[in-house]
Design a protein around this nucleic acid. Structure first.
Length: 274
DNA sequence: AGCCAGGGTCTGC
DNA sequence: GCAGACCATGGC
């Protein structure tokens, strides 16, 4: 059976490694929400994405075959063999439990400037408030697409502002970091495009030229927008995981895909509250 | 009410 | 190199 079907301008996905809540609301993306009609909506590349589950299939509404293969195929990591990865990680008992809890997590390949800003906003912050700040950021400085839907602001637009212009979004001390990020990205001092292919340590160094981007935020950017699966963001939850579940370090089976293992463990830690 | 949050910077040893 | 204060804000 084919993994994808294309019908009436909708893309239909059949995969047992894709759960909408587990993927869109697991702390990697902050712009999706489950609406009252059961449809997940969010803005990606200035397009309102509508996704819902229909029996065993997932429907990407108004996404044509061409749009899917041009962009969303990689956005949703369908070029990644999740069943193989899960099989590899099953070698570890704890990871097996984590994966069985949330087998439908996928790491997204999100837009880079959006991911940089999102994880700068995330610093010393909680997920509900991160969403609020990002939402106000888009409302104030993005383009209106439809009622209550806005594109993510461009680096060029934000580069022309100053920190006090961001007061309405109530980002606190993070506002000045966003301005610094936008200016360095708009000027080319920090090249986001090279992050996917260049040496991983120079990718990290490059990102940390931005004020407010340290080790944890740079790992998140590389993992959630560049598919650098060896990156391993260490937040307070993952510190708990490491001290209580892996005092001797990560198991061998995670080698090269530490970031994917991390996302299962992050969700597991927050759900079972270890 | 007070602790905490997908941390980083700055200062002082 | 490393510990500790400090940072704005609001969710719970």
């Amino acid at each position: 059976m084919a993994e994808f079907e294309f019908l009436d301008n909708n893309t239909i996905i059949k995969s047992n490694s894709f759960d909408l809540r587990q993927t869109l609301d697991c702390g990697q993306a902050f712009r999706f929400s489950l609406c009252d009609d059961g449809v997940w909506r969010g803005v990606v590349k200035s397009k309102i994405l509508e996704i819902y589950k229909d029996n065993n299939k997932i429907v990407l509404k108004n996404v044509t075959k061409k749009e899917f293969y041009d962009y969303f195929y990689k956005y949703f990591s369908f070029d990644v063999d999740y069943s193989g990865i899960k099989q590899t990680l099953f070698a570890d008992e704890t990871l097996k439990k984590a994966i069985e809890l949330s087998p439908g997590i996928r790491i997204l390949k999100q837009e880079k400037f959006e991911t940089v800003c999102s994880f700068i906003f995330s610093q010393n912050n909680n997920i509900p408030r991160i969403k609020g700040i990002i939402s106000r950021f888009c409302e104030n400085f993005g383009e209106k697409i439809a009622d209550e839907y806005y594109s993510f602001p461009t680096a060029e637009k934000i580069a022309d502002l100053s920190a006090c212009d961001l007061a309405p979004i109530r980002a606190g001390f993070r506002a000045k970091y966003i301005i610094d990020a936008a200016r360095k990205i708009a000027s080319g001092e920090v090249d986001l495009e090279s992050l996917e292919t260049c040496n991983i340590d120079s990718a990290r160094e490059n990102l940390m030229k931005i004020k407010g981007v340290g080790p944890k935020v740079s790992e998140c950017i590389l993992l959630f927008s560049c598919k650098r699966f060896e990156c391993f963001p260490m937040d307070v939850w993952m510190k708990k995981v490491m001290t209580s579940l892996y005092p001797n370090g990560l198991p061998e089976c995670t080698k090269g895909i530490e970031g994917i293992a991390q996302q299962y463990l992050f969700d597991y830690a927050r759900t079972v509250k270890i």
